[in-house]
Nucleic acid binder design. Sequence first.
DNA 1: ATATTCACG
DNA 2: ACGTACGTGAATATG
Length: 968
Amino acid sequence: MSKKLFLLDALALIYRAYYALIRNPRITSKGMNTNAQFGFTNTLFDLINKEKPTHLAVCFDTHAPTERHTDFTDYKANRQEAPEDLLASIPDIQRIIRAFNIPVVEMDGYEADDVIGTVAWQAADKGYEVYMVTPDKDYGQLLIHPHVYIYKPPSFGNPEEILTAEKVCARWDIQRVQQVVDMLGMMGDAVDNIPGIPGVGEKTAAKLLKEYDTLENVLEHADQIKGALGEKIRNNKELAIMSKKLATIITNVPVEFHEEDYRLKEWNKEALTEIFTELEFKTLGKRVLGENFNAFHSPQQATQTDLFGNAVAAPAAGKSSGKKTTKKDSSAVPLPDWTAVDATETAAEESGATTETVGLVANKNITNTPHDYELVETDEQIKALVKKLQQQKEICFDTETTGTDPNNVELVGMSFSYKAGEGYYIPCPADQKRTQQLLELVKPLFNEPSITWIGQNIKYDLLVFKWYGIEPKGQLFDTMLAHYLIEPEGRRNMDLLSAQYLGYEPVHIDELIGKKGKNQGTMRDVEIEKVKEYAAEDADITFQLKQVFVPLMKEKEVTSVFETVENPLVRVLTDMEFEGVKIDVEFLKSYSRDLEKDAKKCEESVYDQAGVRFNLASPKQLGEVLFEKLKLDPKAKKTKTGQYATGEDVLLKLANQHRIVDDILSFRELTKLKSTYVDALPEMINPKTGRVHTSYAQAVAVTGRLSSNNPNLQNIPIRTERGREIRKAFIPREEGRLLMSADYSQIELRIVAAISGDPNMCEAFRLGKDIHTATAAKVYGIAESEVTKEQRYKAKSVNFGIIYGQGAFGLADNLGISRTEAKQIIDNYKKEFPNIQRYMDEQINLAKENGYVQTLAGRKRWLKDINSSNFTVRGYAERNAINSPIQGTAADMIKMAMIKVHHEMKQGKWQSKMILQVHDELVFDAVADEVDKLEELIIRCMTTAMPLPNDVPVEAEVGKGVNWLEAH
DNA sequence: ATATTCACG
DNA sequence: ACGTACGTGAATATG
C-alpha cells in the first residue's frame, strides 16, 4: 500500500471550525466556547477514519515575524484580532494533538504554508502521496509536484474535496499551477492584505496570463496594454512584484522530513479521555474512544447552574417515595419499539455519525434534565392537582396532540410545571367524551384570572384548547416570543434553547414518534410513561426558560415591546387562525381547468418553436435549449451552480430576440398560479369548518413582521390580471356577510418621513399630497402639475429603493435607464430630501456604535456584520440598518392596531371577525349590518394605534365586497 | 437537502 | 472586481 501523508494547516482549520459553528456555539456547562476544539477534533478524527493516512502532522504558525512582515509592514495588517474564544482554544487543541501522538511542526520565521510546502515536496520525492489539509486556495501553487494534493475537508453539506493541479487550473482559469502566484500578484488578497494591482481582479488577471503567461512578462509588455488597465499596470509594477513575492510559498524552509516522526502511532487514551471530559465531548468522545468513554461519570457534575451561575433545582436524590429520579442511560439507546426500519437510523445517529456533524447540532455535551415528574390520571388525582395549581401565580403548560395542525388534532395529554425540576402529566384518551370530562375537571384552573400561563409557542396550545372550548383567562407568557426579541435571528426549537440557556439535553421527540418522513407515529401510540417524561420535561424546561428570559429581556431592553406588542398579539392571532377564511372551491376548480388548457397551449408552442420536446418546468433544460440550441444572447449570466439563469429578468431581456420567450413566461405564470394557489388551496380546507386556516409565524421574520404558512395567505396574487382572479375565491363565510379590507396608505414612506424628520417629505404627507408626484416634482425641479406619468413612475421607484438602501446600479436596472441618469436622480433626491440621507447615515453609525438598530416600539435587530471588512457582507448589513427600522416599525404599528381592533371587537361582542393580515392590510369577514360601524372602528384603530413623530399623519383605506378582489 | 423561480408586502 | 433592494413561503427539479 502506498504511503499517505496528511499535513494539516492548523490555524486555518481552527478558524474555519470556529466560524462554521458561530451561530450555534457549543458552550460547556461552565460557559466555555468549544467550537474550535470540537470542530478541529472532528475534522482530524474524520480524516483519520476516512482517509486512513499512514503519516500525519499538524503545522502551526509561530509568533515570530516572518520575512514577509519585515519586507512589507502591511502584510496581514488587515487581519482582525482573533476572537478570544478562538485564541483560548489553541492550547487545548495542542493538547489534543499531543494526546493523539501526532507531531506538531512549526518553525520561527516561517508560516505554516511554508513549512507544509517544504515538507510536502520532500515527502513526495520519497514516494508519498501528500495531502495538504487546508481550506486556503493559495496552496494551489504547490501542486507543481505530482503526488501533492490539496484536501479540502468537508464543510456544511459539501463533501470533502481533493484538489489536483487540473482542478486548480480550472478554478482560476489558468494553464499551469505556477501561475497561482502570478494571479495573486496581480489581483492581491484582501485577507492577507496583499495589495496586487489596483483595479485588477480575478477575471482580468486570468486574461492577462493567458496572453503573457507570467506576471513578469505582463509587466514587460505593459506598454502594449491599452487604456486604463495598461496605465494601472505600468504605475504599479513594483507593487505587483512585491505582491507576487508575498504570495509565493517558501519551499526551502530548514526542516527535514523524517518519516518515522510522522507515522501514525497509538493514541494516549488516558489523555484524550481527560481532555474530552473537560471539554464535555460526550458523543465525540465515544466515537473516538469507544462506548466505554463516559465523560459524565466524573464527580464534579454535582451542581447545575444556569446562565447566571445560579444553582438550578437539583434532582431529588435519595427520595424514598414512589417517585423515581430517572436518568437517561446513554449507552443503552432508547429505540422506538414499534418500528424496525428506524432502529438502524436512530442507532447511527446516536453513535454520532450524523449528529455531530459540524454546524448541525450545537451542543450535545450537556446533561439530561434533573427531574421528578408525576403522572396524574384519576379524577381524584386531577382534582388534587388542580387544587394545588390554583395556588400558583405562574404555571407552564404544554399540550401533546396527535399531529401538528392545531386546528385538526386531538389532545393526547397536557403537562404542567410551576417549579424547576417538577412536572405533571395528564393523559387524555382517544375517547373524546372521556377527554371532555377530564377537561371539565381542569377548566376551573384555566378560568382562574390570577394565573399567568407560560408556554413555548403558546398560540398552538391555545388553539388546541379553544377547539375543546377552553380559553385561559389569565395573563400569558410565550418564551418563544421572549427569545424572538432577545435574539431575532436565532433558532428557537426547544432542544436548542434548553441546551443553550439551561444546559439540559431534553428527550427528543423523534425518540418517541420517529423521524418525520417514513411512517412517523403519533403521540397517541407512545407508552404513557414515556410521553409523561417528554411532556412534563417540556413544561419544566419552558418554565425555567421563562425565568432566564425575563432578566435577559430587561438587559437587552426589549421588555416593553414584548409586553405591549408581541405577547398581547398572541390571543389576536389565535382567534384569527381559529376563524379562517372561506374559499369558493367550485370557482377554483373551474379556473384550474382554464389555466391547465392555456398552459398546455403555451407549452406546445414552446416545443414547436424550439424544435425539441423537453421539460419546460426544468430551468436547467430550458437554459440549455435557449442558450445552446437557440443560441440566444450568449452573455446570459450563470447561476452559482454554473447553470444558465432563466429567471424572469433574464428572459425579459431576451424577449426581443425570440418570440418563444413570451410563451415561456406565460407558461411559468399559469403553472405557478395553478400549482401554488388554484389547486393547492382547496386541499387546505379544514373538514371541520370548511374554511382555510393559515398559521402565522410570530417569531420568524427578523424585522418583526409576521409570516404566514400552511397555506401562505400573504402572497395571494394581485399584480397580474390572471393572478388577481384568484382573489375572487376568497369569500365571506355565509350569506349576509361581506369581506372588508383595510390598507395602510404608504405606511413605510410615512415612517421614513417621520423618523428622519425630513421637512419636505413630512410636509407632503401633512398636505395629503400624492407622495410620488410630490417626489417627482422635487427631483425634477418642476411643478406638481407638470409631472408626467414617466417621472412619477421613476420617482416611485426611487422612493421604494430608498427604503431598501438601493444604489444607482439597482435603480438603473430597475427602470431600464442608464446609471448616469439613475445617479442624477438619486443625487437630486438626496439634495431635495436632505434628512433622508442623514437618516441613512445615522442608522449605519448607530449600528456600528451599538451593534443594533431599533424600531419606534423598541424592537431591535443586531447586525454583527456591520463592521465586516468584507465589502459585500458589510453592504448587506448596512442596508439592513436602513431597512429594518422602517419595515419593523410598520410591523409594530399594524400589530398594535390588531391588538386594539381585537380588544374593541371582543368588548363590543361583534359578530364580524378579523381573519387575515397581509403586512399593511387587515381583512375582515363582516356581518352586513356591522359594516359601517366596523369601518369606523378599523380606521380609528389603525390610524391611532401608534402615532408617528413630526405630525406625519397615518392613513388607512377600507374597501368591501363579495370577495377579496372586490374588497380592494 | 439544495437550488431556482416566483407569488406577496 | 465583487455585487448591487429589504422581508417572506411554496412548488418544482435535481443530486
